[in-house]
Amino acid sequence: MISKFNILPNALFVVLLAVLVGSEQIKEEPLLLGLLILTEVYQLAVSALRPHRAQQAGDVTAIFFGLVLVWELLTVQFDVLDAFLFPTPERVLEIFRDDFPTIFKGLGSSLILLTSAYGLALATAIPLGLLIGWRRRIFNAVQPVSKIMSAVPPIVYIPYAIAILPTFQLASILVIFVGAFWPIFVSTLNATVQIDKTLIDSARMLRIKERRLLFEVILPSIMPQVLTGCSVGLIFGFILLASAEMIGATSGIGWYVKYYSDFGDYGKVIVGILFIGLVVTAVMAVFDRIQGHLLRWQAKYAEH
């Protein structure tokens, strides 16, 4: 047990406590203290219950504590940074608490845009990639076009999409769709073209119908590459979602950041940025779980 005890995060925790107790704000605002204590308890619990994860938990916590400490020292204790541009950690947590309903509602509208566009991208890019990759002639015809189209950074479509479509929602769905579509399509296409020919032969010996060949043999076999494309597509989707919202939305997480930067309310801007980071991390964690399940047949995802 002793060997699993991480010195650095615990030492930083003590230092942080000392700094906070010495400052005035701690009495008015216990939020930061609460967050730090929660993190420390979590770190200690992981170290005690999951010894093999102890080192990583300790290191991550140490980095987090270190960042908070530097931030706290620069904004509160030494006050070297402009308070207008760099709000204190306590202030940020306060805004987060007070604005949570607004932010959460914004998240709702953002996720609706993202899921409809991303769902559309999945539903079109995968079947098209399979079919075109499988039909050599269409592939040869389509490849140059898709190379050029996929090379265009989708952000440049945003103003045009807003101009040609009646609502902002439709415009952002279109742009997010385009951003997510290409990585998924291209990875599906390339993997289909390069598929192991014996696998196809072994299916052909069964006199399999083309539809079943595509969806029951080729698709599962190229699933690793398809999922890599899907994860890139999802990240692109987030980037385009935020960009579109910053340009034309009246709600949503990207809008929140843009709106308050225009007012110079940088506390809210930081809250918005941190929140987006948390949301993307959470969504990617769900994605990784789904990926692990779909690829459970691969040695590296085997669950035991």
Partner: peptide
Amino acid sequence: EPQPKCAFVFQDYALFPWKTVLENAVY
């Protein structure tokens, strides 16, 4: 083209790695 009632065993097995042994045999 491949005919009914014929089966082929390949040197490199050509099994479907995303299926279990039983699922491979059933497919």
